[in-house]
Amino acid sequence: MAVDGTSGSGKSSTCRGVATRLGLRYLDTGAQFRAITWWMLREGVDVHDAEAVAARCDEAPIVSGTDPSGPTIEIDGVDVAVAIRSDEVTRHVSPVSTVPAVRARLLELQRAIIEDATTDGGIVVEGRDIGSVVWPQADVKLYLTADTEARALRRAAEQGGSDVAATAQVLAERDRIDSGRATAPLVRADGAVHVDTTPYSLEEVIDLVVGLVLEAGS
C-alpha cells in the first residue's frame, strides 16, 4: 500500500496502525530523508549547496527497520530515530530532499525494501511520492490531507507543545517546497483515494483505511 500526503496529516500513525492491524511491514520514507539530512549536518556538509550534498549522499550508510511496532533507522549501526526528529533536522530536510541525487539514491533503497517485502506478506509505505514515483503499481494508493490548523495542532502536540502558529508556518513552507520541487513533487497519484483526516480520530482513519485495503483484496 502506498500512502502519500502532506506533513501532519496523520500518515505515520495511520500507516503504522494499518500495518500492525493487517500484519504487514512498514516503511517511513520521510525518515530516510531525515537520516541523510542528519548525517550531512553531522559531517559539516552545507545542506544548501546541492552539489555538495549530491557529492556525498551515497556515503550515508542507512538501514531502515520495517517493524511497525518499533520502526528503526540506523546510520553506522546507531539508531537515529529520535535524533532525526530534532528541530535542526526539520529545518534543513527540505533542501536536502530536493536534490535529485538524494532522491535517486533513496529511490533505489526504497524499491529494494518494497520488493523484498512483497515476498513476505506486503508492506505499507508512506511518503510524498510513493504512489506517483516509487511504487505506482501498488494495489492500494491513498493521499492523506488535513486542514492546516488541524495539522499544526497535531504536530505541535507531537513536539511537546510547540507554538501552533509557528508550526503552521513551517508546515505551509514544507508544503510549498514539496509541491514545487522539480523532481518527484508531492502530488495525488493517479488512482489514489483522497482521505481528508481533519474530522476523524486516528482509530477512525485506521478503520477506514483497513476497510479500503480489505475491499481491494476481495
Results as ranks from 00 to 15, higher is better:
1 M>Y: 08
3 V>F: 01
4 D>T: 05
5 G>D: 10
7 S>V: 12
9 S>K: 14
9 S>R: 11
11 K>W: 08
18 V>W: 04
19 A>V: 00
20 T>N: 08
22 L>G: 13
23 G>C: 03
23 G>R: 06
24 L>V: 01
31 A>L: 08
32 Q>N: 01
33 F>C: 02
33 F>S: 02
36 I>A: 14
36 I>K: 04
36 I>H: 07
36 I>Q: 13
37 T>H: 11
39 W>P: 03
39 W>E: 06
40 M>Y: 01
40 M>K: 03
42 R>M: 08
42 R>S: 14
43 E>C: 10
47 V>N: 09
47 V>W: 09
53 V>Y: 03
55 A>Q: 05
55 A>S: 13
57 C>Y: 00
62 I>A: 08
62 I>W: 06
63 V>N: 03
68 P>L: 09
69 S>T: 15
71 P>W: 04
71 P>Q: 09
72 T>A: 06
72 T>H: 05
75 I>T: 10
75 I>E: 10
76 D>W: 07
77 G>T: 04
78 V>C: 07
80 V>L: 02
82 V>S: 09
84 I>N: 04
85 R>E: 01
85 R>P: 00
86 S>N: 06
87 D>L: 11
87 D>K: 14
90 T>R: 12
90 T>P: 00
91 R>I: 01
93 V>H: 08
96 V>L: 12
99 V>T: 07
102 V>R: 11
105 R>I: 01
107 L>F: 11
107 L>R: 15
108 E>Q: 13
113 I>S: 05
114 I>A: 10
118 T>W: 14
119 T>H: 14
119 T>N: 10
120 D>T: 04
120 D>M: 02
123 I>A: 07
123 I>P: 03
128 R>H: 08
129 D>P: 04
136 P>G: 10
142 L>G: 10
142 L>S: 13
143 Y>N: 08
145 T>E: 14
146 A>S: 14
146 A>Q: 13
147 D>W: 14
148 T>P: 08
149 E>P: 00
150 A>H: 13
150 A>I: 10
150 A>K: 15
152 A>K: 04
153 L>H: 12
155 R>C: 00
155 R>S: 01
156 A>S: 15
158 E>F: 09
159 Q>I: 05
160 G>Y: 07
160 G>H: 05
161 G>V: 05
163 D>V: 05
164 V>L: 03
167 T>H: 06
167 T>V: 14
168 A>I: 07
168 A>M: 11
168 A>N: 03
168 A>Q: 13
169 Q>S: 14
170 V>P: 01
170 V>M: 13
171 L>M: 06
175 D>N: 09
176 R>T: 12
176 R>I: 00
176 R>W: 01
177 I>H: 09
179 S>W: 00
179 S>N: 02
181 R>H: 10
182 A>H: 13
184 A>I: 03
186 L>P: 01
187 V>I: 14
188 R>G: 00
191 G>Y: 05
191 G>I: 06
192 A>G: 09
192 A>I: 06
192 A>Y: 01
193 V>W: 02
193 V>D: 07
196 D>R: 12
198 T>I: 10
198 T>L: 08
199 P>L: 12
199 P>G: 13
200 Y>D: 11
202 L>V: 13
202 L>N: 03
208 L>A: 15
211 G>F: 08
211 G>K: 09
212 L>N: 02
213 V>Q: 04
217 G>E: 15
218 S>C: 02
